[in-house]
């Protein structure tokens, strides 16, 4: 079986395999992104970039959790003005770079998207889902009207594919998914709002108190979101949440995802995870008789 069996497409974005580096993990420095692309990731999503430089929160910015990790980095980023060099370095790999952006208004999202496009990103991911920064992320992404305005405006303003990354921290993710229907794909899900308390310090571990839970602990939640949205809408979906093995990736694909993102597993498996996922997925497809990723998309969904 050939490596080309792993190819997948999301709108006009062509990927060598379905495994993408998720936003927020190892994607602030261009050299790191380039290395991860060279080690087998089909694409990387950059750290979420805003209009201005932000330091984010003081450490501790991570806390461990059963089968996962809670983080509250706080949207640390150098600001869009300073991020072009990193994208240029990452693009030295000749693989797609997806620019993630966060903002609180339609205008700022449009500004950022235009700048990202000038940096020659291959797609733009809208962070409508960071669970731990006031005025951004999930606070924007919980409002279906605002989500619809942002997505619609960006579809008018920039020609590259627009992906909307949604939050599971809402009553019904389907409402938000439908509001973002003009997006080229939905990215499901971002982290789940969570805290940890240290019983000896008698206070929350994270300096921000609240963070986002990621890792295997949230995989069933991510799967449920992908399943529901795919069954109801048939939209293009990129699945994310707790993927560590090719079996996890297949589960997401069978729930309706056309590609998946990997984040927290970099902590447990290291950068080599992308190469392992690619070869293990190929062997799985060979054993089970699938000739393409497309053959598997949504086949686990009960109509």
């Amino acid at each position: 079986m050939k490596d080309s069996s792993l190819k997948t497409e999301i709108a006009s974005l062509k990927l060598e395999n379905p495994h993408i580096l998720a936003s927020g993990i190892l994607d602030e420095n261009g050299y790191t992104m380039k290395k991860i692309l060279e080690e087998g990731a089909a694409a990387v999503v950059t750290k979420s970039i805003g209009m201005d430089e932000r330091n984010g929160y003081q450490a501790p910015v991570i806390a461990d959790a059963p089968a996962g990790l809670i983080n509250a980095i706080g949207l640390a980023n150098p600001g869009i003005e300073s991020f072009g060099d990193e994208i240029a370095i990452a693009k030295g790999s000749n693989r797609p770079v997806i620019g993630s952006i966060f903002a609180s208004t339609v205008e700022e999202f449009a500004n950022l998207a235009i700048r990202m496009q000038k940096y020659r990103v291959d797609a733009i991911e809208l962070n409508l889902s960071c669970p731990h920064v006031k005025g951004f992320g999930s606070e924007v992404g919980s409002d279906p009207d605002l989500v619809e305005q942002i997505v619609n405006e960006l579809k008018l303003k920039v020609p590259v594919p627009i992906f909307a990354k949604l939050t599971p921290n809402v009553t019904n993710i389907l409402d938000i998914a439908k509001a973002a229907h003009k997006a080229d794909a939905l990215v499901l899900i971002n982290t789940v709002r969570a805290i940890r308390i240290d019983i000896h310090a008698r206070m929350p571990v994270l300096s921000n108190i609240y963070g986002g839970l990621s890792g295997p602990a949230i995989k069933p939640i991510g799967l449920r979101a992908v399943y529901d949205v795919y069954r109801e809408t048939g939209f293009n979906i990129i699945g994310v949440g707790g993927i560590e093995t090719h079996e996890d990736a297949v589960e997401y694909i069978m729930a309706g995802a056309r590609a998946v993102q990997i984040g927290t597993a970099l902590m447990t498996k290291g950068r080599k995870i992308f190469g392992e996922l690619n070869s293990n997925l190929l062997q799985f497809m060979e054993r089970e008789g699938y000739s393409s990723i497309d053959d598997m998309v949504g086949i686990g969904v009960v109509k």
């Binding site: 190892l26 994607d27 602030e28 790191t32 750290k47 910015v61 983080n71 970099l266 902590m267």
Partner: peptide
Amino acid sequence: KCGIGICDSCS
């Protein structure tokens, strides 16, 4: 920041 190889700050 993280110490565990995921945040990219020390790369």
